[in-house]
């Protein structure tokens, strides 16, 4: 028998054949490409990848990816993905959804998922609007702003997802830009490789409803001297990585630095804000049920349990 060299997977192998119904020029295309590039870069077996999404334009993403795909409920993608990850730790789990999905209706899960530090990746398509419901203000739109789809200015302020992620306990926190798929892919690949809960907030244009934060705006086309409104953290010597995770002072200092950067506007930093290798939820589970370390829950034989000792104890 001849041994053939392993086939190298390319970005095409991660594309489904489904016709795409996003608006032309949607930032979601960039994120989709970023995900597919990251999967190819990591050579992940499509049968071992489970994508989970919320509801919204962004929620359709898994349908366009050749991997197991679960398009779930508005705001609940994180609990569903958590259940998926717990059931089968042999898989790569990626959750994603809109900023309305993750920071609005799903805010509680966003926070509590950070507390767990489960080993998976969460991508938020942050376009400042509720896309699929036709452009209402999302939780990241600042007070007083008004896109062309809004009848009135935003009456309440936007949240700072990076700072929120820091406070919640995500151990990999990054921001990417949808129209720079290559950089986006690098960040996503790092997020996938990170051991622990990784949040990537992807700044995304919505050409149909968001006329404030457009491609041109991000490019700074309106500035007296055209200059990008984004900069890459790593290019300015910023390193958010905690070198010694056993040192609480370093953790606090790095978190503070990340939060400080997250308030920078014009230019907005993209790249990795914070990264720390801390015990994951899985690690904690393995302490309690060591056999799960080698055998994911789904592979365990749960069907031959002897419950007689429990019943005997009741006599």
């Amino acid at each position: 028998m001849s041994v053939s060299a392993p086939v190298k997977l390319t970005i095409k192998d991660y594309k489904s054949e489904l016709h795409n119904d996003w608006c032309p020029g949607c930032g979601d295309f960039g994120i989709l490409t970023g995900i597919q590039m990251a999967l190819a870069q990591l050579q992940l077996d499509p049968d071992k990848v489970a994508m989970f999404s919320g509801i919204g334009c962004s929620g359709k993403t898994p349908h366009y990816i050749n991997a197991y795909g679960f398009h779930t409920l508005h705001g609940r993608v994180l609990p569903v993905a958590t259940g998926g990850r717990l059931a089968n730790t042999a898989l790569t789990v990626i959750a994603l959804g809109g900023d309305g999905d993750g920071y609005g209706i799903g805010a509680g899960y966003f926070v509590n998922t950070g507390r767990r530090n489960l080993d998976f990746t969460y991508l938020v398509h942050n376009n400042n609007v509720y896309g699929l419901t036709k452009g209402q203000a999302s939780p990241t739109l600042s007070k007083g702003k008004r896109t062309k789809s809004m009848p009135e200015q935003a009456i309440q302020d936007g949240i700072n997802p990076i700072a929120m992620a820091v406070a919640a306990g995500y151990t990999f926190i990054a921001r990417a830009y949808a129209l720079d798929p290559k950089h986006c892919a690098q960040i996503i690949a790092r997020a996938i490789q990170h051991k622990g809960s990784a949040l990537v907030d992807v700044l995304q244009t919505c050409p149909t409803y968001n006329d404030l934060y457009t491609k041109e705006w991000y490019e700074g086309a309106d500035l007296p001297e055209k200059k990008s409104r984004l900069y890459k953290l790593e290019e300015r010597g910023y390193d958010g990585k905690v070198q010694d995770p056993s040192d609480p002072e370093e953790i606090v200092a790095k978190k503070a630095a990340a939060v400080a950067r997250s308030y920078e506007r014009e230019p907005i930093p993209i790249g990795v804000y914070y990264e720390a290798l801390l015990p994951t939820y899985e690690d904690e589970i393995y302490k309690r049920i060591p056999s799960l370390k080698d055998t994911p829950l789904v592979e365990m034989d749960t069907f031959h349990r002897d419950v007689t000792p429990l019943l005997e104890a009741m006599r």
Binding site: P79, T82, G84, G108, I289, M300, T302
Partner: peptide
């Protein structure tokens, strides 16, 4: 018994986590 018990942040999370796990085959 190797049965994992997860205390969730609310019941919406509880049910959806269980649905996610069901789809995963457990």
């Amino acid at each position: 018994y190797g049965l994992l018990v997860v205390q969730c942040e609310d019941e919406i999370s509880s049910i959806n986590m269980a649905v996610g796990a069901s789809h995963m085959g457990v």
